[in-house]
Amino acid sequence: MIGLKTLLQIQDLHTYFYLRKGISKVVNGLQLSVREGELLGVVGESGSGKTVTAMSVVNRVRMPGKVVKGKVIYQGQDLLKLSEEELRKYRGKEIGLIAANARGNLNPLVKVGNQIANVYLAHNKVNKKEAWEKAVEMLRMVGMNDALRRAEAYPHEMSGGMAQRVMIALALVNSPNLLIADDATNGLDVTVQSQIMDLILDIVNKQGASGILITHDLGVVAQCCSEIAIMYCGQIVEKGPVTAFFDEPKHPYSRNLLNSLPERRITQERIELKGSLSSPLSLPTGCVYQTRCPYVMDVCRKVEPSMLHVDDNYNVKCHLYQEKTENRGSANEKLA
């Protein structure tokens, strides 16, 4: 199912926020690629820059943030080089984005049916009536009973789960090739969460799209995704196939993540790793994880590790694997 063609490639992405306190390097040299048909899970603590990464992909980082460096190549086209007008052909059409906090992201004064129809209208030459019918169809597709009546409702008249379904309908109405779900289930109760996830997976599979699932939840990734990427302080520190990752995570941070949570679930509240996340305002030189890493070495404080290819399709950004890769051995022995 997974093709070999790369759909999206993010190269050395830097997105900074220019604050009064200083420059906040929220995304800081991020590398990531998604192949066609691939479902990639991106996992990180809150504040690691997941959402900003998602926004950078559609080149819609809000003030005072700015993409200062890097490329976002989608089907051979660097999206960061396009004008707003040209970008619009990609946004909502090629790339659908489901944001967390459905309530805040839906227009409170417009009927949800119209909101969906507007997105459809923006990319298709149809009339209003057809767009409205499409909106109702989408609502039906995202599992709303009584879709016709629901289309007439305003966001505030809906439960959180319903609103989230509307968000999904908005993202999928134009059958995008790439779906980015940014914490799509955040704040919903557990049963609804799994329903929503199932829905997303179902639709992605049906449409044959690629997807990036941004989440706190390792469990979700384990269940749904083929690939996983671990994000820390604006960088991807480990990326590889899900099975390989859960068999044997490589990066000290990944291990820490898995160990700290026996049931393999991280939520914002429960994350309690030793030490604290480095502030994006003052990232240390060298490895970003040095402040928490139990294996920290001298070199970690001086030189930033590069993304090391440790296995088929498996990369990790850690000095521990430097020699091993050089020696073609495995670092696992040392860590174990």
Partner: peptide
């Protein structure tokens, strides 16, 4: 506001 941003993300004119 977020919803205007999201409208742009969805490619509205």
């Amino acid at each position: 506001s977020d919803f205007i941003n999201h409208a742009k993300v969805l490619g509205l004119s």
